[in-house]
Write a protein that binds this DNA or RNA. Structure first.
Lengths: 307, 307
DNA sequence: TAACTTTACGTCGTTCGTAACAATT
DNA sequence: AATTGTTACGAACGACGTAAAGTTA
């Protein structure tokens, strides 16, 4: 039983006229006749009565037609879907990303992509760097976004934008506006509100301090909070300093709610992870290009006041 | 896009293993590989990633698989249906029949058929002789049952059983038990309750009387009733006579509720109508044979006391 | 005669299997 | 070395079109 046979059968059955059906199908009456006969003989069921010089459905044919019609509809739907999957009209992309990039840099990229290709469903899963890399390697994610270093031979890695870890304070804080803050001032001269231990931001900050010769243990930590927005709210009070990703701080710096402290911390890079061998669908490929071009257009576009 | 291609795709997709899928499909890996490739190239959509020495679904492939699975299920259902339509497990037979045969002789035949082939749906439509013949000629009915003569070159006609028109009265009626009733006695010696003008029974009765030299107009008609059971109920009172088909009267004669008057009226024949050229499905053909054999087994089987 | 379906037959394209090949574990 | 997927190629099969035949209105 072939889809073509069924389509031919349906066409003939609905027109009750073999020649007209043949025209509609762009076939010769001979081919149509043969196709119907094959279908009938394969199952031993007469579907049409050859009556006089015409043909008309048998009872079995009528019943079968009821089954065939919705089936052809499904087939056409599947065919259309397959075509759309090749184009950019339909699809589903699974993206894994680590905390910061998922929360700050990525959303506007995804939204812009969605605006351009509304038929593509995007699903974003947040995980740590290892989780993201594993998902991409296994194929659970089409692509991943992480901050920081990663090394996996199965992965193809592209740098996107630089992210600066920065120290911010409220405008009323003693550090605000000053350009002579040294690393040593970070201990004793201010209280700190930081992300919780285990978070990427916290560990990066501590490593950065250590590289500057400051023992993180000596910081006066007033509070540990489990979200970026929480520590920023605390800093806004002017009673403490905090350290966050530049992408996190950016919107607050532009409004003047927060002020950056003029101490350089090492920057890290957002990276795009793709599988080395696995082919991306056209949609996913487009999203990857999208991310790369957004990143390339201006690595600092989202950090207008970070200098 | 072929059903076979889809089946192959689904098999490979579900096993994530081309060779195993090939075994399951009784094909060579080569054929399976080629089939998948054809499907992919026809629509320009990579459905599998060839990764290492294995293959795994792409995102597009996963989505497509969700569409393909229910579709293959439908296809298999249609295929099964087609097979069953050829056998006697499924089907639908439309039968047209005229009043008397539809109401009395046919039902037990249909019930016996149904008991043997419960998967076959029977639909019975009642009409007059002309309606029935037309339905069969047009194909609206697989077969028809009528009483009396019919002539249509498109129809194949078989005689089934004889039906006697008979005069019946209640046991208290003056005619009951008498064997010396003549045709002339039918006028003036009893009141009549008859089926309405236009019914087959009424017109046949009047023609029969006319052939016996009795003017139907002279009958003392007390009441005209539109159903066989109604006239029989009236006759049971003993106050009138009536004329009905032997098949209609039979059950009442056996119980003694009614008595037949010993006057011979011409008999008519129940006939089976089939289209001369149109092929019956196996089920319908079986039903026709069924009717013929029931009729042949004993033409009087349903008329035990009609003599 | 005209309309319609079917049969006969040659041709072309598709799909299959065998066998060799390439790549991975 | 064994497993797995792919390519090359020849053979079998199926479907199509042309042309002719059979049937009916």
């Amino acid at each position: 039983m072939t889809l073509e046979q069924l389509a031919i059968f349906a066409e003939v059955a609905e027109r009750q006229h073999l020649t007209q059906a043949a025209d509609a199908l762009a076939l010769t009456p001979s081919a149509v006749s043969a196709a119907v006969r094959r279908l009938e003989e394969a199952y031993g069921v007469p579907l049409f009565d050859r009556i006089g010089r015409g043909i008309s459905l048998t009872a079995a044919g009528r019943i079968f037609l009821e089954e065939v019609r919705p089936m052809l509809a499904r087939a056409r739907a599947a065919e259309r879907l397959l075509g759309e999957l090749g184009g950019l009209q339909r699809g589903e992309i699974s993206v894994f990303a680590s905390q910061t990039v998922a929360s700050y840099w990525l959303p506007p990229v995804l939204m812009r992509f969605h605006a351009e290709y509304p038929g593509i469903r995007l699903s974003l899963t947040i995980g740590n760097t290892a989780t993201v890399a594993e998902a991409v390697a296994e194929g659970a994610a089409e692509m991943g976004f992480v901050e920081g270093e990663i090394a996996d031979p199965a992965l193809r890695i592209d740098s996107l934008v630089d992210d600066e870890l920065m120290i911010v304070v409220g405008p009323d804080h003693a550090f605000a506006g000053r350009h002579d803050i040294s690393a040593d001032d970070l201990v004793g001269k201010t209280a700190w509100v930081l992300r919780e231990p285990g978070s990427g931001t916290r560990s990066e900050f501590e490593h950065a301090l250590a590289r500057k010769g400051v023992d993180p243990e000596r910081l006066e930590i007033a509070l540990e909070l489990p979200s970026n927005e929480a520590v920023l709210s605390a800093a806004r009070s002017g009673l403490c300093a905090t350290a966050v990703s530049g992408h996190v701080a950016a919107p607050h710096l532009t409004t003047g709610n927060l002020v950056r402290v003029d101490i350089a911390l090492p920057s890290r890079t957002f990276r795009l992870l793709r599988h080395r061998d696995r082919n991306l669908g056209r949609a996913a490929q487009k999203l990857a290009e999208f991310s790369l071009s957004v990143a390339a257009s201006d690595p600092r576009a989202d950090l207008p006041v970070c200098r």
